[in-house]
Amino acid sequence: MGKKDEDYDEDSEDDDLEEDQSEEEQYDESDSDTKKSTKRKAGTKKKLPPKKRANTGKVAKNTEPISFSFKNPEYLKKKSKNKKRMHKNLKQIITQENYQDLPPTVPTYINIEAPPSMYPPKKYCDITGLHSKYTAPNGIRYHSSVVYPIVTSLNEYRVQDYLGLRKSTTNIK
């Protein structure tokens, strides 16, 4: 993974969608950057295996950097580098606003979120983007038997990349 230039981000999806990674998000954005670039760098070999990500995730809960620094030295470097980043991200700001103390009838950033759809989600073939009726044992959805050999030939990281597109990496363990 190439080093980031100061605190510039790759303009990836850090603020596109809230992901449920409560532990990891305790950190400043740097951590979600790490996670992102590991998960997202599609088609590059320079990526950390997902296991490493799980490590940093656990670490976040303990918030005692020194005791685990050996697990992922890159991580500490990043963290200290990102000290330069003075500003808080939106999530941290929202937390500080203590909206939970307001009566639920008061509209806030949190409770204006659009509720879920009433309609079932569409299903696409992860490989081709076409409609899909089938799901392989590794979690990949596919369009037809023509694609199936590709589906079964994918290694674990590749599978994670594909599932990451629809943020369902946590579904399979």
Binding site: D16, A42, Y109, E113, G164
Partner: peptide
């Protein structure tokens, strides 16, 4: 009501599917 999706998310999505299917555009 707010939906956390805008043009940035769409561009990133396109970038990711193209990277997985055709060229590395990350």
């Amino acid at each position: 009501r707010r939906i956390d999706i805008g043009g940035k998310a769409l561009t990133n999505y396109l970038k990711e599917i193209v990277s997985l299917r055709y060229y590395d555009m990350m």
